Amino acid sequence: MVKLTLRERETAQEAVRRFRKLVERSGIKKEIRVREFYEKPSETKRRAKIRAERRNRRERMLGRA
């Protein structure tokens, strides 16, 4: 849970900006996107496998250069 206490002489805009940063760092936005739609476990594994293959390919290409 993200808590934000207003500082002295802090405007509402500054507080909102600080709140957005706190939410972003805590990973809440990412979690909401993931849970927005149900995804079958097989799809999750498939996407993770594709991501790992791309990462490995990228590392191989950068290692040779």
Score class of each variant (00 low, 15 high):
Tyr38Phe: 15
Lys30Tyr: 08
Lys29Val: 05
Lys21Pro: 00
Arg46Gln: 11
Gly27His: 03
Lys29Gln: 09
Arg18Glu: 10
Arg35Ser: 02
Arg18Asn: 04
Arg47His: 13
Ser26Ala: 06
Tyr38Thr: 13
Glu43Arg: 14
Tyr38Lys: 14
Glu39Ala: 06
Ser42Gly: 04
Val16Arg: 10
Ala15Pro: 03
Arg35Gln: 11
Ala15Asp: 02
Arg35His: 07
Ile28Met: 00
Glu14Pro: 01
Arg33Phe: 02
Phe19Glu: 05
Glu14Trp: 04
Arg35Tyr: 01
Ala15Thr: 03
Glu43Asn: 12
Glu24Phe: 07
Leu22Gln: 11
Val34Trp: 13
Glu36Thr: 02
Arg35Glu: 03
Leu22Met: 09
Lys45Arg: 08
Arg20Gly: 09
Ser42Ile: 11
Lys45Leu: 09
Glu14Val: 00
Arg25Pro: 00
Tyr38Arg: 13
Glu43Ser: 12
Thr44Met: 15
Gln13Leu: 11
Val23Arg: 03
Glu36Ala: 04
Val23Ser: 02
Gln13Glu: 14
Ile28His: 03
Val34Gly: 06
Glu14Ser: 07
Thr44Leu: 15
Phe37Thr: 14
Arg46Thr: 03
Arg18Met: 04
Lys45Glu: 04
Glu39Asn: 03
Leu22Val: 02
Arg33Ile: 07
Phe19Ala: 15
Tyr38Gln: 14
Lys30Trp: 08
Ile28Trp: 01
Glu31Gly: 03
Val16His: 06
Val16Tyr: 06
Glu36Pro: 01
Ser26Cys: 06
Val16Lys: 11
Pro41Gly: 07
Pro41Arg: 08
Arg17Ala: 13
Ile32Asp: 10
Ser42Tyr: 10
Arg46Asp: 14
Arg35Cys: 03
Phe19Val: 09
Lys40Asn: 13
Phe19Asp: 06
Glu39Gln: 02
Ser26Arg: 11
Val16Asp: 05
Lys21Ala: 06
Glu24Ser: 09
Arg18His: 11
Glu43His: 12
Glu36Ile: 00
Ile32Phe: 04
Glu24Lys: 11
Arg47Ser: 12
Leu22Phe: 01
Leu22Asn: 04
Arg20Ala: 10
Leu22Cys: 07
Phe37Tyr: 12
Ile32Glu: 12
Lys30Ser: 08
Val34Arg: 15
Val34Asp: 14
Lys30Phe: 09
Tyr38Ala: 14
Glu43Asp: 14
Val34Leu: 13
Arg33Val: 04
Gly27Arg: 10
Phe37Ala: 14
Ser26Gly: 02
